[in-house]
Design a protein around this nucleic acid. Sequence first.
DNA 1: GTATGCTACGTTTTT
DNA 2: CGTAGCATAC
Length: 714
Amino acid sequence: MEDFLSQLNKEQLSAVETTEGHIRVMAGAGTGKTKTLTSRYAYLVSELGISPANILTVTFTNRAANEMKSRVRAMLGDLDLGFISTIHAFCTRFLKEEIYRLGYPKNFIVIDTEDQRQMLQRIFADMKITLRDTTMRRTIDQVLEGKKITDDYISEFIRNSSEELLQKIAAEPEKNNQIFLRYLYEQKKNYGLDFNDLINFTGYILNVFPEAREAWQSRMQYVMVDEFQDVSQKQYAIAQTLSAKHGNLFIVGDSDQTIYSWRDAHVQLFLDFDKKYPDAKTIVLKDNYRSTPQILKTANSLIAHNSVRFPKELRALHSDGAKTLYFHAKKPQDEANWIADTMGNLVSQGASLGDIAVLYRSHFMSRGIEEILIQRKIPYRILSGISFYERKEIKDVIAYLRMLTTQDDIAFLRAIQTPSRKIGKKKIEFLKEYAEANRISLYNALLENLDSEIFRGTGAKRFVQAIAATQKGMENKPMDDILDEILDLSGYTEFIRMDAEQDRLDNIAELKQSVAQAAHDPDANLEDFLSRVALYGNLDKEERRNAVKLLSVHAAKGLEYPFVFVTGLSEGLFPSAQIETAEEMEEERRIAYVAFTRAKERLFLSENEGGGDANLSKFPSRFIFESGEENLEFVRPLPDDLRKNALRKIQQSEESLQLLQNLFFVGDRVRHKIFGEGKITAVDISAAAYVVQFDNLKTPRSLQFSAKLEKLPD
DNA sequence: GTATGCTACGTTTTT
DNA sequence: CGTAGCATAC
Ligand SMILES: Nc1ncnc2c1ncn2[C@@H]1O[C@H](COP(=O)(O)OP(=O)(O)OP(=O)(O)O)[C@@H](O)[C@H]1O
């Protein structure tokens, strides 16, 4: 029972036993931060007798939450660990209880990125916008994410009726504003919340409703947050509010592992914790248990190249291993083949395929590897990218289930069109207009027009009948029967069987199984199941033990594998070509650092020059050189000229990043030695020049970026 | 009007 | 790989 304490070192133990107050654990990779947090959880429950219902533990991914739950269960036995979750899953749970305060039903639906895309597509069609110069992704970022950075929209969203929103839409001249308002309207109509809303609405309710705040503050006697370096201001605010009454907030993190700045993470929140809470105690862990000294050398040499950094000590306790192995390939297939060969060697030396992970910066980079693995018949599993519930066929099935409960437009549009029922653009358009005119849902619009000429010869009737028949007496049917019934009656089963792909059938079978399992609980109902589904992430039969794992570095956060291949380490891929500023480059370097530090026994780095065009051929990544060539074992030495050219290119890039680092923005006030004070009126990146209107000069001047300008407060 | 097949294309990262 | 866009078949 308490033997989990004996597995901790002195500092870890002190973090576990210091249960009261504000505690921060700051430590490098592999020092046992997560282990400490998990042990602390077990300690709170088993030694102090705190109920799991009173401990909020926030993890970064669902995978991490599941991992932690299973470790806690291993220590304490079977318990309800619902408050070990991602912040989004917690917010969902919170809102189920509290969102009635905002006039939203507790069976609200969670809108994921794919749903957003489809909603936007419809909005674009309505507004007759073609997306030639903007991509969908960018619109989501700009419009949906951008406008939800502040939570100003919430009170407006709540205060305005759908009616008023429609009026505002009609009156709104600006395109993006109008897209946003239309999106809000759709959301409201369907009682949908997207990922941002989950956080924002939770924060809003905690702020605005003292009873709710009070109740949850009392409930959460202990709040613990893992991976705190990647927490956003809004997420932090929720943790702060919830822990304000009991004053027990425990956070762990590593400032070198901030890799979610693009999602609004601010490492400064972690670094300034002691300023926020002057009573805060900081515990530093220095012993790395995970990796061999050789791996740490590589990783430390790399991260030392970041200039904005909170330096820390890291001592390797692991026994010696082999040097980091680096392979330069000409072509993508060569790299993939080398990886497969090397895996083969590892296995023949006794490793299991399950001990091996392949990490990459972006998903598309997995393709080349996959092809070779299939060719060589090496079993593998992809652990990142689209999750189980994001799969098309699973979303279809969920949409059918929602047609039995919420009957929202989002589910309707999906279900009615898969399989095709001779209902296309025109008929949907008709339903849309009818629904809007009568202020009803699309499904109700269909019901009211079912017998009209328009839907003759379509599958509309069968669709409606399937739903009605399944709904009849639904309360008394087991959930798995309901699922079978709606899929059979609607024709979906037939459709998916014809479509055949075994994978998809397997996934649906998997989902059925999880429905069946949930159905064991006599109180189980569809609505609860659906609300849990939204954020349950990986129902994937993850542990197919003897398979190589392929995943993005971001998804590998917090995980560890004996053998790690970091692939696609070339300039333009990793670091990504999109990088424009020194800060972004430092984040790329942290991503590489996270990748390297996942390895326990040995690290493998590889890269290739790219497929066709010799002019576009890629150089080895700066992160290879920065790892320290003395720390690497080269499978083959790099050709001298390649090495020289790569280093030159990298240096150029670093210099231009430095230059850009001093970049001013339009509107900044600056002082020039000669011209005096002025204002930046334009920035011409390609000419590397500012246009500055100086107060004492009639006409604006164009100045090189390298001109000595000093920034003034506005 | 709707369904389906073909080709070309680009792709950070996740809840 | 997945999907957007277009041409063709029903
Ligand atoms: N005191 C200890 N004795 C032996 N092994 C330990 C000890 N503490 C941690 N470990 C082991 O070290 C490894 C890393 O632990 P953990 O994942 O908790 O580190 P972490 O600090 O959270 O890492 P990261 O920041 O990379 O996520 C695990 O395999 C863990 O079991």
